[in-house]
């Protein structure tokens, strides 16, 4: 075979594979949206869910998903940022660092049910935190940390070595060089990592069943007192997220419109993830421009 034909075949194969991936993706998302979107209404988004009657909404689940993401990022981002900076910039090249890296790798590949049960036993039962958003956020932090740490480390590493030399040669300390020059240049990569981990948080169900719980407790959106048990902001209350709701409605839902609720919720979840993607990109771009004035 001459090189030209080989090349043609290779390109053909690559296009075919890409087409397969895109087709699967489009048909999945398309199916979910087509079956779910018709059920989305203002009423569906703003009323609470029903256990026995039809006409239930997903207001609380929607809010819980977003709030859980927020709490999870609050817990995991600072830790991941610190460890990412350490691994990328300070960690000596020795076996201890390698052990740390391997541990992070292992942590990221643990099955979510196992992490969920572990967090259930440790935080919910042993530490008496109970089924709560906080327990859920801690469990999700376990998944998030490795992902984010890896991502931040790689984003920092991908900033050119020349930038570091430039900073140091101007008499700046390593720390000032990292925070003032390297980190701003790494923002786009870090945003991508946050988006990936957010998808995971929105979509996770197994680990949350044992930690954040499956009950939609009565919550009051006018009560801003974070310590009040009925406040929507109280992190100690049990909270069913959208993903858990979908699972529950599908597995034990007895309302007449269980199917519709599940399709609608799925569509909302997908739209939520897409919206978060766009929002994060937008914020990331603004941040990057502000820090680097690169436009």
């Amino acid at each position: 075979m001459n090189p030209k034909t080989t090349n043609k075949i290779a390109i053909g194969l690559i296009y075919t594979f890409v087409a397969i991936v895109v087709a699967i993706l489009i048909s999945l998302i398309g199916y979910i949206l087509v079956t779910g979107v018709p059920h989305i209404s203002w009423h569906f988004l703003t009323s609470k869910s029903q256990s026995f009657l039809s006409g239930g909404g997903i207001r609380d689940q929607l809010f819980n998903s977003i709030y859980l993401l927020f709490l999870t990022l609050c817990l995991s981002f600072p830790i991941a940022l610190g460890s990412g900076i350490y691994l990328a910039e300070y960690a000596p090249k020795n076996w201890i660092t390698e052990v740390i890296r391997t541990t992070i790798e292992v942590l990221s590949s643990l099955p979510s049910v196992v992490v969920g049960l572990f967090c259930y036993l440790l935080f919910v039962v042993q530490m008496h935190i109970g089924f709560s958003i906080l327990s859920g956020a801690i469990a999700l932090t376990f998944f998030n940390l490795p992902l984010l740490t890896r991502n931040i480390e790689n984003s920092l590493r991908s900033v050119s070595h020349l930038q570091r030399e430039a900073g140091l040669s101007l008499g700046l300390s390593q720390w000032k060089t990292i925070t003032g020059i390297i980190l701003p240049a790494a923002v786009p990569g870090i945003i991508t990592g946050i988006i990936l981990s957010a998808g995971r948080v929105f979509g996770e169900a197994a680990a949350l069943i044992y930690t954040a719980g499956q009950s939609a407790s009565i919550i009051d959106y006018t009560n801003w007192n974070i310590f009040s048990s009925s406040s929507f902001l109280n992190p100690m209350r049990p909270a069913e997220t959208l993903a858990v709701h979908i699972w529950k409605v599908n597995s034990e839902g007895i309302t007449p419109d269980a199917n519709l609720v599940s399709s609608g919720s799925s569509a909302v979840l997908i739209i939520l993830i897409l919206l978060f993607n766009l929002l994060a990109h937008w914020i990331g771009n603004r941040l990057y421009r502000k820090m680097t004035s690169n436009f």
């Binding site: 030399e165 430039a166 008499g171 004035s293």
Partner: peptide, 21 residues
């Protein structure tokens, strides 16, 4: 060393401006 590098500046082979204004 930070004081040393303030007094003795360096310019490198490849231009390395910061991603700033």
């Amino acid at each position: 060393v930070y004081e040393v590098r303030k007094q003795i500046g360096m310019v490198f082979q490849r231009p390395n401006p910061f991603a700033k204004t």
